[in-house]
Design a protein around this nucleic acid. Sequence first.
DNA 1: CCAAAAGTGTTAGGAGTACACCCATGG
DNA 2: CCATGGGTGTACTCCTAACACTTTTGG
Lengths: 228, 228
Amino acid sequence: MPDRAQRADTRVTVDLVIFAIREARLQVLLIRRAVAPFEGRWALPGGFVLAGEGLEAAALRELEEETGVRQVYLEQLYTFGDPGRDPRGRVVTVAYVALIAADRAPLEAGSDAAAARWWPVDDRPPLAFDHDKILDYAVERLRNKLEYTTVGFQLLPRQFTLTALQQVYEAVLGRRLDKRNFRRKIALLGILTPLRERRTEGGRPARLYEFSARRFEKLKDKGILFPF
Amino acid sequence: MPDRAQRADTRVTVDLVIFAIREARLQVLLIRRAVAPFEGRWALPGGFVLAGEGLEAAALRELEEETGVRQVYLEQLYTFGDPGRDPRGRVVTVAYVALIAADRAPLEAGSDAAAARWWPVDDRPPLAFDHDKILDYAVERLRNKLEYTTVGFQLLPRQFTLTALQQVYEAVLGRRLDKRNFRRKIALLGILTPLRERRTEGGRPARLYEFSARRFEKLKDKGILFPF
DNA sequence: CCAAAAGTGTTAGGAGTACACCCATGG
DNA sequence: CCATGGGTGTACTCCTAACACTTTTGG
C-alpha cells in the first residue's frame, strides 16, 4: 500500500487553448508571464482549480477572467501530468480548448510589450512549460473535429457569408478548398438558414446565413458529418 | 488571488477501462470493492498516482497489478473532476483505456464472489462512483477509434483469422458486417501479411494473418483509414 | 467600364453496399 | 456424406474531386 508520502497531494490547474480566426489565420491567445519560472516567456492562460470547483467550471472562470467572454464552445483536450513539467513541484494540468467567434475576440493584437495577445499558431514564440506540446495537440484535435462536427461555426459570428465559413475551414486545415464543392456540400447538409444580403469589401454583395442547430440534430443521429 | 484554502490540494487517481473480446463480446474488467464507500459494488480498477510518477506510468502500474500484463495498448480517455464524485473528498481521476488481446486476458470469468471478473459491457452490474459514465464514454470512444485507426488489432493475438478480426469489429460496433465487403476493404488496405494455415473449430481451415505495422505507417500519412 | 468578390454545373473515378454460392476439412 | 465454417465477384449507387465563366455591386 502506498503511504502518505507516496500518494502526495497534487496541485491541479486548468490551461486554456483559446482559438479564434483573425486575419484569415488560426490564432491563439497567449499570456506573457510576469513571474518565474519562465518569466517573460509566453504561455497559455490558466490557473488553479479552486476547492469545490469542477474542472470545466474552473476553465470557464479562467476564460472569463482572461477574455470577458461567456457562453463559448469549451471542450476538454487532455491532461498533462509528467513529473517535472513544472519546476515548482507536482502540478497536473487539465487542458481545455475554447473557440471564440471573430467578432467577440476581445483584444487587438498589441505591441510585443502587451501582457496578452493573439498569435498565429504557425508563427508564434516558444512557450513556457510544456505548452508547445499542448498547443500542437490542440491544433491537431481542432483539425480533426472540424471534419466531423460543427465546431467550425463556433469560430464565426451568428450571421456569416459562405466565403467566411470557407475561410474558417481553410485557416484551420491549412489548405485551400474548392469553392463550388464546398458550397455544394454545405448546402447538401441543409443546416444553414439563408438571410438577407449585405455587401462587404470590394465586389458583389454576399448572402448571409445562420447556423440552424435544429436541423443539425437530425443529421447527427444519422451519422452525417462534415467530409472536407 | 485565491488563498491556500481555495486552491486546496487534490488527490489524483487513475482509473482503468480494460477491454477484451471474450466469447465474441466486448467485455470489461471490473473489481468488487471490499471497503466503503460503495462496499460490495463493482468498480473500474484504479488507484492513486504516486509522488514523482507520471499519469501514464501510474496507469501502466495499476494495469500490471490488476492483470499482470505489460506492453498493451493504453490511451488516456478523459479526466473527471466534479466535486462530489467521491464522497471521501476531492478526487480528480484521469481515466485510461487499455486493450488486451483475448489470449492474454488473464482471468477466467469466475463466480459472482470473485474480487475481479470480466463483464460484458452491455450486461453489467451498476458501478460505483461515476464509473458508469466513464465506461459509457470509453465504449463510445472505442467505437469511434475502431473506424479510423488500427486499435482493433490490439484486441487480437498476433496471428489471427479474418473471421476473428471481423468478430472484433462486430463485437465492438454491436452490429453484423458483410463478410465479403469486410474482406475486400481489409485486403485493399494491404496491412496484413498472410501466413500458413491452421484449422480451428468445425469446418474448413482458415488462413492466419499478421498485422503489418510498417505498411500501415505509409497509409496514415495519406489519411487512409478504416471505413466500416 | 473596370476591379472585386459572389455565385453556379458537369463529368469521371473511386468507395460503399447489397447479395448467394462453392470449397476444404473432420468426423 | 454431412456438418461446419472459409472463401470468393458483380452491379448499382453515391460521394468526391477537378475544373471556368458569368453576375452584381462600387468607384
